[in-house]
Design a protein around this nucleic acid. Structure first.
Lengths: 331, 331
DNA sequence: CTGTTAGCGCTTTCAT
DNA sequence: ATGAAAGCGCTAACAG
């Protein structure tokens, strides 16, 4: 039943090629300074025996696994799955593999995971986390954070959130909106998304428009109810910016129930640039984050940390842009 | 700069506790038959030194990594990300971790990945793949397939796709549709999704309704164009079933451009039960696959394979149900 | 340029 | 119930 195929080791290859294990090891590791003819012999032996090096033995010596972990609230969300997609692509190019860790909103989970990861020796962590795990990331594992600023000397990648907020405001005003609204959930832990609102408000002030804000503490409860009440109180609102795309969809739904249609009755801009899958369009008019580039930057940063290379900037902030979808007037 | 914190080994713990490494090992592995007092001593030493066992050394001996790989076309798709989400949850309960492998439509990629995984000794693979990799999965790595039937003795998990097709037909007929359409893309490699169409057609025949089919070879090109032409040719169609939810969205879009509105002018049912994120609603009326249960079944099956436990059925087919969304009449 | 060899940290006999 | 010791397969330092 069980093939029990006694696995081929370096010793077997060495014997087959008539060289020593040291030489085989050198070939495996692409070291240079190996005579052409021995190289050939070894490669042939490897081929013939279809030898594959044992990663555990290797890891035991080198203390590297070539695995990095992505610590996210949940992979079941288009932002994170798109991000993960690109991270995996980028890692693969560098011979690294990707471990997915759903922290699931529960910061206890995150901490558990970080411990687990230390124990299991992943080579580094990319973490998108909205809770308080500062003390733990100060571990000696290379760590790159997304969208969240931890203690001073942590490396992180984010978008130009403040500018995104400004942009949203400008686009609405450009489309003749005079009574603006900003709608968001508010996490008790400060994070980069707050900047979106700050940018929007700042720009609204400068543009001298009316501004109404609905900022609901998270976890949200009866958000629909709150949104409805808000719009009943301020029926004059004609331009809306939300902290993210899903919030925008919620608002559109509530307003739909109130008999209002986007563009016709109001305009709305989301944030994130979510697409349900790689071949799907954006959900609505939105401020697009360059998720692929964020992933790329995060991986690059992390690999530099792992390789202990010099890093010139520990914060990378990527530009965003406006996408004109079907919830704002065409210009 | 570098903390160089020389890592704690079993030896250190043994010394601290005044026992031998063998004993420490036994404690780590929860072996029984250890004197209460020594157990305490060791546990305290572990605690005090915050010792964590080295997984490489362990793997070297035991040949297990407690990592399993999920081989999917892309994580950036709500079906796969939901599936992955549940797989991860299930694995975590069993102390396993999840490696994500995007094969990206390219079956060469898949094969590369499988080789990589053998080399890196994951303990098993769960694979959702729509290409021809039969020969490779016959490797001696425990493998569970989703939605695709490989060689005879492969283990796989799927939904009752045929029945789902029947169900869709019944629901449309129940809602007074007389002129049905089935719309799908067709992959050159047969897979379980074909059953959806077969079920639908079979039921349509039995119900004696008119049936029009649009089956477009994949990869799709100018699908919108084809769909439009199809409906121009058959304007009488009033009930549509598509092979999946995204195809339904496409159809709705095209029909929208032709001035037709769901429910009002036609009814449409998708397949999959996609939700963009865990707290989002279904996209439309659809035949819902129980993704969580599929993930659970797949993990259970795989763990049994890994543990070489007896398996009574190598095919698990899970029930589906109809969700009444806003693209069919309310009953 | 290549061979030899000492461990890496753990599990697992075999003794006791 | 515990200790002693032999490797698991590899890398890297040293020798030649």
């Amino acid at each position: 039943m069980n093939e029990q195929k006694k696995s081929i080791t370096m010793k077997d290859v060495a014997a087959e090629a008539g060289v020593s294990v040291g030489t085989v090891s050198r070939v495996i590791n692409n070291e240079k300074g190996i005579k052409e003819v021995t190289l050939k012999k070894v490669q042939q032996a490897i081929e013939k025996l279809s030898y594959v090096p044992d990663e555990y033995a290797r890891g035991l010596k080198t203390n590297r696994s070539n695995i990095i972990a992505l610590l996210i609230p949940t992979i079941w969300h288009p932002f994170f799955s798109e991000f993960a997609y690109h991270v995996e692509k980028e890692l693969l190019k560098n011979q690294y593999k990707l471990l997915i860790c759903n922290a699931d909103k529960d910061s206890k989970n995150e901490i558990e995971y970080i411990k687990l990861l230390e124990k299991n020796k992943v080579d580094g962590i990319i973490g998108i986390t909205y809770s308080d795990i500062d003390k733990y990331v100060s571990s000696n594992l290379p760590f790159v954070s997304i969208d969240r600023h931890f203690s001073e000397n942590v490396y992180y990648v984010t978008s130009e959130n403040f500018h995104g907020g400004q942009l949203a405001c400008r686009e609405l005003v450009k489309r003749d909106c005079q009574n603006l609204a900003y709608i968001s959930g508010v996490n008790k832990h400060l994070n980069e998304t707050t900047e979106r609102g700050r940018g929007f408000k700042a720009e609204a002030k400068q543009k001298n428009t009316n501004l109404y804000c609905l900022e609901m503490p998270e976890p949200l409860n009866q958000a629909e109810e709150q949104i409805r009440t808000f719009f009943e109180k301020h029926p004059q609102i004609d331009g809306i910016f939300t902290v993210n795309d899903f919030m925008a969809l919620r608002v559109i739904k509530v307003l739909g129930e109130m008999g209002k249609t986007p563009v016709e009755d109001y305009q709305i801009i989301g944030f994130d640039g979510l697409r349900p899958a790689f071949d799907q369009p954006y959900l609505l008019s939105t401020i697009v984050q360059q998720i692929a580039q964020m992933a790329q930057a995060a991986v690059e940063l992390l690999l530099k940390l792992i390789r202990e290379e010099k890093i010139d900037q520990n914060v990378i902030s990527l530009p965003v842009h406006f996408f004109e979808g079907n919830t704002t007037k065409k210009l």
